[in-house]
């Protein structure tokens, strides 16, 4: 097929042909591979991992900040990378490092900063909620990572297609159709699919990858037949509740997701709408802590 007819078929194919924005997606940071291989040795080498992290100042600061965050609730404060590694353990440290690296790998800029601020709040609230609402196979650090990255596909689409922001606005205001269905009206893919591809590329757990792919899909989180692991369903339910809490507390940036997914999420988390006012109150305190 030649370029001209391809452009007629799909504006996306045209955009790809023209290579309109010569940017690459955030690659999986090399340091994650190096830390994983150090961890996979028979005797995991704390000292070597510490050296790897310390070599990157912002990563070191990020890891210490993570260990000291109210979300982990440690009494003592980490003052060095090695202390942070000891407090968190290598497994959680590795996940935390991956999270910090991935955040750094995404583009900055005023527009994206707002997006990341909201994601960081949703992530913090998700981690907090996961600790409150204990469920088997639901790790608070997974809830945190999922909250931060579930919408990373939006960043990729915004950078590739300037018109995507109009689609995004429509999808946010859509009260009936799934969010991704609105995206698919304008584009041949959606942010959940792209987010899942990226998460697989970064070796995130299957639970997180699947949750990213189906986080706007009500039947997938509600019906057992969908085959979605329960951990993924909990991640989706927790993050949707976190987003709802954030919007309720801040009174800003409303979407229709809670209208569409809220009842399923509450059922999954074994909560009742009458439980929410108390959670709003506690969430506002958590947000003050995060900010």
């Amino acid at each position: 097929m030649n370029n001209q007819s391809m452009n007629e078929i799909s504006p996306v194919a045209g955009a790809l042909e023209q290579n309109i924005q010569a940017i690459d997606i955030p690659p999986r940071p090399m340091i994650i591979d190096r830390i994983r291989s150090a961890m996979n040795e028979d005797v995991p080498n704390f000292k070597f991992v510490g050296q790897l992290v310390s070599a990157d100042v912002s990563l070191a600061a990020g890891l210490i900040k993570t260990a000291n965050s109210p979300y982990f609730g440690y009494q003592t404060r980490a003052r060095s990378v090695n202390e942070a590694l000891m407090m968190l353990g290598l497994d959680i440290s590795c996940r935390a490092i991956a999270t910090i690296c991935l955040r750094q790998a995404f583009p900055n800029g005023a527009h994206y900063e707002r997006f990341w601020d909201a994601s960081a709040r949703i992530a913090a609230l998700s981690g907090w909620l996961a600790r409150q609402i204990r469920r088997p196979n639901l790790r608070p650090d997974d809830a945190y990572t999922f909250g931060l990255f579930r919408d990373c596909g939006i960043v990729v689409l915004l950078r590739r297609f300037p018109l995507y922001k109009d689609t995004l606005a429509r999808a946010n205001n859509e009260a009936v159709l799934p969010f991704t269905a609105v995206e698919l009206q304008d584009f041949p893919t959606d942010h959940a699919t792209i987010g899942c591809l990226l998460a697989q590329n970064w070796w995130l757990s299957n639970g997180i990858c699947q949750a990213i792919r189906y986080h706007h899909d009500q039947p997938a989180i509600e019906l057992f037949e969908s085959g979605l692991p329960l951990a993924s369903r909990y991640l989706v339910a927790i993050s949707q509740l976190a987003e709802h809490l954030l919007q309720k507390v801040s009174g800003a940036s409303h979407t229709e997701e809670w209208t569409k997914l809220g009842p399923s999420c509450l059922r999954l988390l074994n909560l009742d709408a009458s439980d929410l006012p108390e959670i709003y109150e506690e969430a506002s305190l958590v947000l003050i802590d995060v900010d």
Binding site: L16, D24, G153, V156, L157, L184, T189, D190, T193, L197
Partner: peptide, 18 residues
């Protein structure tokens, strides 16, 4: 039925001509 979304997603992520 999700195949084309994944294919398009990969092409968009990699920014490569089909």
């Amino acid at each position: 039925t999700e195949f084309l979304q994944a294919l398009n997603g990969a092409l968009i992520c990699a920014n490569v001509p089909p």
